[in-house]
Design a protein around this nucleic acid. Structure first.
Lengths: 204, 204
DNA sequence: CACGTGATGTCAGAGGCTGTCATCACTACA
DNA sequence: TGTAGTGATGACAGCCTCTGACATCACGTG
């Protein structure tokens, strides 16, 4: 399994994020990334289908974890709660990579081209969640809409979590105000959505 | 204003949709489209920023109409109702182009690359709706979430409208079952979302 | 009928991405 | 010990998307 330098894929992903952050996505060529990673341009395209995809490596794992969690969820939950709970579980892998998430989010926000890809990943997540709900007997259009709503909560919660100022020194923080986790933010986003749509219609 | 053959932009857009439908998006080169439209490849890129954008020409108009309708909406409406109502107004331009919408939807559904662009347009629509709500005094995160929810209703409603079997011969249809308009579908989608999130939490 | 204004044509080139074949590191097995 | 197999990588060649720069053409204006 080991060849020349191990983990070419990881080196490429790190080099790409670094370069995108340093000089911008469009100003970075795939040849630049490959060179910094010590491989050929051709090798980059063997590991990642795209110049964009290199930023979205963990997304498939996230999706698979979520689907598994939906399948394993207790049966007495609302579809939306099932999806959100599964996402809160799956998101554990991101909690450990907050700095990476933050840098990545900054790069994506600066490039419509990358934003596009992120939206596609979120849509795929919603599609997968919908399918997983249907496999549990939830019917259309309930399954799809619950999936969309759950993913919206994830999206909003993730944005808040990433946007929150980083804990500079955990020891200096007041110990009785624990940092809000990503899972917390997702739960709060769902509450906001609930409050919003629960608003009674004022006139007609 | 008139030059060589008029409406090069329109010819390009029609040629592109035809070719994408005939032989597929990836199998069509920009040179092919330009040739069928009777112009140069370079001219294509003067009218459209890229090979995908040629399918999304009316999206900006739709967005502007929606924003104007939000600004002009009666003050006694819920944010979500404001957005959905504005979209129902803006969507009039699509009602007249159902065949075009259907063909376009089929092409987009067949190409992740195009789906990506569509998602970006929907995200832009939601962003614009959120800004328009904020201009009316709606605060965050209510504005953004209402915008997202409204656009979701639009998306789902549009999909149903496009997926509905086309009225083969209007005269043969039973006159007392009028075809459901796109606006109808959008309204129904909103109702579905309401019903979904209004579901009481079963356990704790 | 000269001139300005836009839209178009022409050309050159960078960069993304793919197919193809050779090469290399490592493993398994004789 | 060496020999064949396997999988990742390198080395080209080439198509296509997209852009910049400059020339050209149609049309309106004076």
């Amino acid at each position: 399994m080991g060849r020349w330098e191990p983990d070419a894929r990881g080196r490429l992903a790190r080099a790409a994020l670094d370069l995108y952050a340093e000089r911008g996505y469009e100003q970075t060529t795939v040849a630049d990334i490959a060179q910094r990673a010590g491989v050929t341009e051709r090798t980059f395209f063997r590991h990642f289908t795209d110049k964009r995809e290199v930023l979205f490596d963990p997304s498939l794992t996230l999706q698979e974890t979520m689907v598994a969690a939906i399948a394993a969820a207790p049966a007495d939950r609302t579809p939306v709660e099932t999806v959100v709970g599964a996402l809160q579980t799956a998101v554990a892998m991101l909690e450990e990579r907050r700095d990476w998430s933050r840098r990545r989010a900054a790069v994506i926000a600066a490039n419509p081209s990358l934003l596009e890809r992120e939206l596609l990943k979120l849509a795929a997540l919603a599609t997968a969640a919908g399918a997983a709900l249907r496999a549990r007997g939830v019917r259309e259009p309930r399954a799809s809409l619950a999936a969309e709503t759950g993913v919206t909560a994830f999206k909003v919660g993730f944005e808040h979590w990433v946007g929150e100022p980083p804990a500079q020194d955990e020891a200096v923080q007041e110990p009785e105000s624990p940092a809000r986790t990503l899972a917390d933010h997702i739960g709060e986003a769902l509450d906001e959505i609930r409050a919003l749509t629960a608003t009674p219609r004022p006139l007609g």
